[in-house]
Design a protein around this nucleic acid. Structure first.
Lengths: 336, 336
DNA sequence: TATGCAAGCTAAATGGGTTTACTCATATTT
DNA sequence: AAATATGAGTAAACCCATTTAGCTTGCATA
């Protein structure tokens, strides 16, 4: 029941391993192997159901045809969808995908990157942890290891990335709320030092500014991942209460939005009577709410597809040194 | 910048590769390597940041320390959560996970199983496609390839599997609806020849029976994956309409439930006034609905954890021939 | 006749670990 | 004193596909 190896094929076909390898890799022509031999090898390979041992090949070639995908949490709808398309696209290119969850934890991320490198993945698609300082990522960069960041990136390192136009999308989202007549809009976000976070807040500020409304720092509440629910309840309470007097909340991501909605529910607040909400990042079920939740939808499929194709391009093309690709896709405001 | 290999370590430490290998694999004691040598090797390995080449090791040992996970669609909340825990658990055991989407397509599933085997994963966790006949799975079984089925299984093949008690859970779910006073309950499900499907319907029948209500085949509507939305709208319309006169719908899974809710929304029906609903498979947001949606929640974490540990046990233990493990976990009815 | 060359193919090295079957001292038994 | 053990370690085989460098043989040209 043991696997058929190239030697077996070679022996059975009465040729050398070299010839066998060449034929089965479609290099027969260029190496002047005769058609007769060629056919013989193929026939035997088929009969014996030969499948090359990818580890042997990988060892020799130094390539595994495997990509690593690191996200905060694959059970989060946004990342699950990314993962879906990453896998699909990678498969089209003949690659497989190993995935890992970083839990928004910089140390875990560092560790994951290292193990995946040890495991010899050919490249990485990474959504860096929120608090990550750039160390491990910039090490990858220094080592010229192929990788693409998605969703988030670092201004200080020149890397490949695929993100959305956070500023613009946030500007539009805020403008919509302003149009609806809210001029005191609270933001609830997970604490983060990332650029996207900043850009989303900046977009919000710009929208306020263009409407002649003053930006108030205290309306931007940053909660921490630890006990999201409790902190969000407090945040909402604080925003609604008197001097703030907020009537619309802008959740800066998916996760916060879903939990935020849960809190609003529990606090017996009605949307939009008591409070209106908007979420950056869409969720399949937002449109099913009563009323449906307006959200900024990221083009997940494009993000994933682009990331994979850039990555594989970098893996397979001879490296044109430090020529990075930085894609900013438009996010779409879905009014509901 | 090239990787440090075992030879490098051996050379630097003035020992043979053999000794190096033994030391670094913790086999120093049993092979009578002196403590001095041991320390020297470790020290050098650390200094040079030695990471073994896992492909070389894998090639020799015939093991990759990789598991394959095949689900219908990883962007489906249920599978995303499974994937999450599978990865976590596998990592604890020192394994990585390659995932693939079968799209409920038997041919694709067959192909995936084959590629993953070629890729030398050590074992597979599979949620078989709905319409799959058992061929590829039983081939795995014949070949004694380690695998565990989750969520679904085949009565005709004796395999490892981890599933929930579909009959019992469905019985309880139906009983709840009956208690709420609905005695004409419609079922909407994706067409399937799987046992779980049957068991869920059987549980429903049994509940009706114990309440002295006749089972009506026409109240069980099977839609196909093609154009779910349209078919569900038709199904709902048909069920509500006159002779049927259904006032409660029992969605037989997650996917159908979410889309079903969307349809109900679009049809401007109110829950529970016009129609009440219940879903087999929970979804994070069901409790946020107004009113919240009652659902049967599968213990996803346990399913995934159990599946991984059974699989790894099978991979690592000397095979006690054809001794399969079949786990049936209780699903929990979450009344909302 | 000797030389060049193309066609068709192969031996052996390579990649980096693990494992088997030794070696070589010295120490202990019998 | 000869035989056996033991401690410490190693050379070489092995896993399997790819690739480099080169080897025949036949035919044509100088």
């Amino acid at each position: 029941m043991k696997r058929v190896s190239l030697s077996d094929i070679a022996k059975a076909a009465g040729v050398s391993k070299t010839t066998g390898s060449m034929v089965l890799n479609g290099r027969a022509r260029e190496n002047g192997i005769s058609d007769a031999t060629c056919e013989r090898v193929w026939k035997i390979a088929k009969e014996l159901k030969y499948k090359p041992n990818l580890m042997a090949r990988g060892l020799r070639l130094g390539k595994t045809h495997t990509l690593g995908l690191i996200v905060a949490d694959i059970s989060n709808d946004f990342f699950a969808q990314i993962a879906r398309t990453v896998e699909e696209t990678a498969t089209r290119y003949g690659y497989h995908v190993i995935f890992c969850n970083s839990d928004e934890n910089a140390e875990k991320l560092t560790e994951l990157i290292q193990t995946l490198k040890t495991r010899q993945v050919d490249g990485l698609i990474i959504s860096p942890a929120l608090h990550d300082y750039d160390n491990e990522i910039s090490r990858l960069k220094r080592e010229k290891f192929p990788f693409v960041l998605i969703d988030r990136y670092f201004s200080k390192i020149n890397t490949n990335y695929v993100v959305v136009n956070n500023f613009e999308a946030s500007f539009q989202a805020t403008s919509l709320l302003l149009d609806r007549g809210y001029n005191r809009i609270g933001i609830i976000a997970v604490f983060s030092n990332s650029i996207q976070h900043k850009l989303r807040v900046d977009g919000y500020r710009e929208a306020l500014k263009q409407n002649g409304i003053r930006f108030l720092r205290k309306l931007v509440v940053e909660v921490s991942y630890g006990n999201l629910k409790e902190s969000i309840i407090n945040a909402i309470r604080k925003l609604l209460d008197c001097p703030n007097n907020v009537r619309a909340i802008y959740f800066l991501n998916n996760r916060v939005a879903v939990i935020g909605l849960e809190c609003i529910n529990e606090m017996n607040l009605r949307i939009p009577k008591d409070i209106d909400v908007l979420s950056f990042d869409d969720n399949e079920v937002f449109r099913l709410f009563d009323p449906p939740i307006t959200a900024v939808a990221q083009p997940v499929h494009e993000i994933a597809e682009k990331a994979v194709s850039i990555l594989i391009d970098e893996i397979e093309r001879p490296k044109k040194i430090s020529e990075t690709r930085q894609i900013v896709l438009p996010a779409k405001l879905i009014k509901r």
